[in-house]
Computed example of a mutant assay.
Amino acid sequence: MQSGIKGNLTINGYGSSNGGHFEKVKLNGRGTLNGNIECVRFECNGSGTVHGHLKMQNAKISGSGKVKGAVEGNDFAIEGNGSVSDSVSLTNKMKISGSGKIGGSLKADEIKINGKVTIANDCEAETFKADGQFTIGGLLSADQIDIRLHGESSVTEMGGQSIKVKGKKGRFYHLFKAFFPVKLTVKLIEGDDLELESTKADVVRGNNVTIGPDCEIDLVEYQGTLHQDDNAKVREIKKI
């Protein structure tokens, strides 16, 4: 990132620039970057667009920024409505507050979601925390998974050492649950310690397993302990 650095790039309002290597890139308004961007710091305040890949150390989208390519770097934060058309690969943290859309896979050491997120393919992290809604088209894999549901979420498969899913419900939930369901839908959940609520799964497989209220599970396989809430539906149980 040293050779060919052009200093800082700032676009205020309407404007466009070619890609390249920069120290700091800042888009205020509706700025457009045509080409791949490599920089230390990237900021998008408004509805800026990068037509290419973004490689950086730290990036933040505040507003409705778009990256029409892949993102690679250390830390990436979306506050508002941000989208990446390809994959995101980070060495540290991904934080999404608001609405985010990723057209490929997402990989980071720590992923924290507050809002609504769509990830087209796999999602991989050491720790994954979500407070809201999400759709993951592939495998969610993390050592620690902590989910607080707001509405409906879905993932194809989920695996980790510790997995907790809690259904966040308001005091009038039972009156309106037909219109505002709180549910995680998944084909397979596999891990060591599992605590599940409001989860609909084909197979749940673990060591110590707790099936909490509002769960609908076709098959539970466990090795150590199993606890099932009275308000949970489990079709078949196997100790392996």
Rank of each mutant, 00 (worst) to 15 (best):
F22M: 03
A232T: 07
L188R: 12
G13I: 10
Y14R: 11
H51M: 12
G160E: 10
I189Q: 02
I147F: 04
V25P: 00
G170N: 12
T225A: 13
P213F: 02
K93T: 14
L226C: 09
N74Y: 01
K200A: 07
R41W: 03
V234Y: 01
G48V: 05
M158N: 04
C39Y: 02
A130Q: 10
V84M: 03
D214G: 01
A77N: 07
V71I: 14
G137I: 09
G115N: 06
E157Y: 03
R171W: 09
D122A: 12
H174E: 08
K68H: 13
E197L: 07
A77I: 09
Q144E: 14
G151E: 13
I163G: 02
G73R: 09
V117T: 15
E221H: 09
E124F: 06
G4S: 12
A125G: 04
P213W: 00
V155M: 04
L9H: 08
L175D: 00
S89D: 07
P181I: 08
G15P: 06
G46C: 07
L27D: 02
K169M: 15
G170D: 11
D202C: 00
K6N: 14
R171G: 10
N92R: 15
A178G: 04
G69A: 07
S162C: 00
G73E: 05
I136A: 07
K233P: 00
G103M: 08
S62C: 09
E197T: 08
I119R: 06
C123S: 07
Y222D: 03
E72M: 09
M56F: 13
I61S: 01
I61W: 01
I237V: 15
V117R: 02
A178I: 10
T156H: 14
V71H: 01
T10R: 14
V204L: 05
L90A: 04
I111G: 08
T156G: 01
C44H: 03
N12P: 01
